[in-house]
Design a protein around this nucleic acid. Structure first.
Length: 269
DNA sequence: CACCAGGTAGGAT
DNA sequence: ATCCTACATGGT
């Protein structure tokens, strides 16, 4: 019998919604209520107990607390954020559909690469390209539900390689450039303050305003970052009539953005 | 065969 | 500073 940690996460947590939120590309429901989450070199099998908020993380207690608690931001009270959105009808509706979304702490290097790939692309195809990169160049981590799981390739594993099977198109050049960077920068970015991380990210080829904000939010957990993509721009124009200021949600604007992105795409279908 | 997809770089205005 | 457009690829 494999080792597992059972936890109860009743408030503001939904693996399904997170997997559909578009902030990560390697969280997948492989069977009803069963997910595989992968970030960097870590992977875990998570089972949601039917009709409850109980989850089983198939990993050691040590890994749960050191990796997955920060990854899913389990120590943060998202209901406190939601309570500050009560006077916005769109956000209230968004909470109803996507209130279980969290802002993940993903591996920074992986976040940079995946969001460079995301530009002018669609989410299913981003996932496909990322999986091919992992399968081609990443380390084998083990088997989950009969499927081999591979880590996201390290910069060293990707350096000098030809990732043509991932069909990255014109973004392939940018990914190769990222792999050539001194890997220390991903560490250094963690300890930079103020606007230095953003300036550093913007200096990278293929990283512009929007992708930089995504990396800041999903990789560096800068909760004040508010990435504006085509959906957010449409939303602000058509729903808010160009009258929306993310600064109003100081300290959690990025969470507001995720709720808006998730819900607006959902009702568009 | 058009058009679109979590944009960006480089050049022209 | 703001406005264009090329940039590959795959899916409707």
């Amino acid at each position: 019998m494999p080792q597992f940690i059972q936890v109860s996460l009743p408030n503001a947590f939904s693996l399904w919604q997170i997997s559909e939120s578009g902030q990560c590309f390697r969280l997948r429901e492989y069977e009803k209520n069963k997910f595989v989450a992968i970030t960097g070199r870590h992977a875990v099998d998570i089972h949601q107990i039917e009709n409850s908020f109980d989850y089983r993380f198939f990993c050691s207690a040590n890994e749960f607390y050191s990796v997955w608690t920060p990854y899913f931001d389990l120590d943060t009270d998202y209901l406190a954020f939601q309570n500050q959105m009560k006077d916005d009808p769109f956000l209230c509706a968004a909470i109803g559909e996507g209130g279980g979304i969290r802002i993940l702490r993903q591996d920074l290097w992986e976040t940079a690469v995946t969001f460079v790939i995301s530009q002018c692309n669609n989410i299913p195809r981003i996932r496909k390209s990322v999986e091919i990169l992992c399968r081609e160049f990443g380390s084998f981590l083990g088997e989950f539900a009969g499927q081999p799981i591979y880590a996201f390739p390290t910069p060293q594993q990707l350096r000098g390689k030809n990732p043509s099977k991932a069909s990255l198109g014109y973004r392939e050049f940018y990914v190769k450039e990222l792999a050539l960077q001194d890997p220390c920068i991903w560490q250094q970015l963690q300890s930079m303050s103020d606007i230095l991380p953003k300036e550093t990210l913007l200096s990278l080829r293929g990283v512009g305003e929007k992708v930089a904000n995504c990396i800041l939010l999903f990789g560096l957990h800068r909760m004040d970052s508010y990435p504006r993509d085509v959906w957010i721009n449409r939303l602000i124009r058509d729903v808010y009539h160009n009258d929306f200021d993310p600064n109003r949600y100081a300290g959690f604007a990025g969470y507001v953005q995720q709720l808006q992105f998730y819900y607006y795409r959902k009702i568009a279908k």
